[in-house]
Design a binder for these strands. Structure first.
Lengths: 107, 107
DNA sequence: AATTCTTACGACGGCCGTAAGGATG
DNA sequence: CATCCTTACGGCCGTCGTAAGAATT
């Protein structure tokens, strides 16, 4: 289960529909349908099911939900750590090629 | 930072070298080099640096390490939840197309 | 000199949007 | 019949391994 899987899984679980999840993540319905299919094939199990009221978590999906939410929380924490940092790297031991590459990017 | 990023980051941090990390993940050195470059460009910051003793974490990398390890732990927990489950889905409310698709996969 | 890292190149695979069709209520 | 979901198609972008060269010790 990669990180894109986790995002799709959470979006569908929250929106209760593929179309809603797709809207939320800025992709097409068809894309979300393929993502769910691929996700469940990779997992080898169903995590979400279509009901008269839209997509709902299976018992296994419920079990996975907590893990997925914690992964999301960690990912968000990393974003916070990383964003808005000084990338100047002054004084860092670093090969010349890396220096120039990163410098190019920073500029 | 997606899940593949996390795996590469952890592998490099643990092996202290790109070649060792590549060996561990079953890819080429060149692939690991590109992954680290892409990872740090996406992050907008350096997380690992080359030192006389090999690759070591920057202070920011140290800060991220804990998050990465927790993400890994959650991912492993999901694997455990998902593997070896019964995928028979008996009695599940499910569209006919989904039924047949999953049935095909299970068989 | 041996090991390690970088990068240009060509190829392959995966994922996407579009569009058309089927299911659902 | 309006909405939602599925899927074949064609194209594009990303990632890979190879291979050759530079850096480091």
């Amino acid at each position: 289960m990669d990180w894109d899987d986790v995002r799709s899984f959470l979006a569908i679980a929250r929106a209760r529909s593929l179309s809603g999840a797709a809207r939320e993540l800025g992709v097409r319905q068809s894309t979300m349908s393929r993502r769910l299919e691929a996700l469940e094939l990779r997992a080898g199990a169903r995590l979400l099911q279509r009901t008269p009221r839209g997509y709902e978590l299976t018992p296994l999906g419920e079990a996975v939900l907590g893990n997925a939410e914690r992964m999301e929380a960690e990912a968000i924490a990393v974003e916070r750590l990383v964003q808005g940092r000084d990338v100047a790297l002054s004084g860092v031991v670093c090969s010349a090629t890396n220096w120039m590459r990163i410098a190019r990017q920073s500029g």
